[in-house]
């Protein structure tokens, strides 16, 4: 019995099965990954190349212009940019206290676990409702409310530019209220996940010093979780900027420059939603330019939010 007695004939089935060979599946997976990366490049290229005629023709004046009249081929998005920014900020202003309150409820032990489970379910439900349904609800509930109480606001506080009358139902305020509801789940989910990572020892330390529950929350827990909460707000801001349908149905779609929250306004995404289907010629390019601006703005906001979130995860990991 020696080395020579090993059969050198045809391979056994088992040998064939386990012979190293080129892994085509790896190649396929590699290709898929490459395609995924190229997809984003493709989106950017497609949007910017279709926007190029407009970028070339209108240049920076597109951003500072206040007129949008397709039939005269004059395009300026400054009012729309302002509308986008203010509606998202206002939405954040409404949603942040609510979202934070819920996140605290879900992360602290105010309530027994089953009730917390129910609240979580409700928030998830809120996130699952399609944007267009929020829009429909807004038309029949929020628009009349804003029209009614907006009139009172305009009467009493009309001297402030932001509450200048006349009050419209389809206004910046209406859109912001509904937007606030829509970004609430984002704020709650991310804030909650940062609050949960605050080490328990910090709470114990604070309680041991005699702090009440809220002194602990305000003095220890919230400051520790602050970066995560900021990140959640930034990401929610990004979502609010890109949110389309509910806003398109509620904001009134007016390109007139106005500082009043009670006046109709417009956002970049609502502008795209309303005009793309019927646009032709240079208007398509102008809309692509607007889309490119929207992409750039949301990308910047999201990258900033993600960066802060990642930073938080690192620092809180160090606390444990």
């Amino acid at each position: 019995m020696g080395v020579a007695s090993i059969p050198v004939g045809p391979e056994s089935p088992i040998q064939r099965e386990y012979r190293p060979r080129t892994d085509f599946f790896k190649g396929i997976c590699w290709l898929a990954s490459l395609l995924t990366v190229l997809l984003l490049v493709c989106i950017l290229l497609e949007v910017f190349s279709k926007a190029w005629p407009a970028i070339h023709r209108f240049g920076f004046g597109f951003i500072t212009g206040v007129q949008w009249s397709p039939n005269r081929e004059v395009f300026g998005v400054l009012p729309v940019l302002i509308g986008t920014g203010i509606s998202s900020l206002l939405a954040l202003l409404f949603a942040l206290p609510l979202g934070l309150a819920i996140a605290l409820f879900l992360s602290e032990d105010f309530l027994p676990a089953p009730i917390r489970q129910v609240i979580r379910f409700v928030i998830e439900l809120l996130a699952a409702i399609p944007s267009v349904v929020y829009g429909l609800w807004g038309i029949f509930v929020v628009v009349p409310l804003v029209q009614q109480y907006g009139g009172i606001l305009a009467d009493k506080l009309g001297f402030l530019p932001i509450f200048q009358g006349p009050a419209y139902g389809n206004s910046l305020l209406t859109a912001s209220i509904v937007l606030a509801l829509m970004v609430l789940p984002t704020i709650t989910a991310i804030s909650r996940s940062t609050l949960v990572t605050v080490p328990y020892a910090l709470r114990e330390g604070s309680y041991a010093l005699g702090a009440t529950r809220w002194e602990t929350i305000l003095g220890v827990i919230l400051p520790t979780a602050a970066p995560g909460i900021v990140a959640s707000s930034i990401l929610a801001f990004g979502r609010a900027m890109g949110e389309t349908m509910a806003v398109a149905m509620l904001i009134g779609n007016s390109q007139r420059l106005s500082w009043s929250f009670l006046a109709p306004s417009n956002t970049l995404s609502a502008l795209l939603a309303n005009q793309f289907a019927e646009a032709d010629g240079i208007q398509v390019n102008a809309l692509m330019y607007a889309a490119a601006l929207l992409v750039l703005m949301t990308l910047c906001v999201n990258i900033a939010g993600e960066a802060i979130l990642r930073h938080t995860q690192k620092t809180t990991a160090g606390l444990r």
Binding site: L40, G242, E243, L272, A273, A291, L294, T298, L299, N302
Partner: peptide
């Protein structure tokens, strides 16, 4: 991650 943050209307624009 970036694609998750891209507004849905941009998918339509593309």
């Amino acid at each position: 991650k970036l694609l998750t943050g891209i507004p849905s209307i941009i998918c339509g624009v593309f």
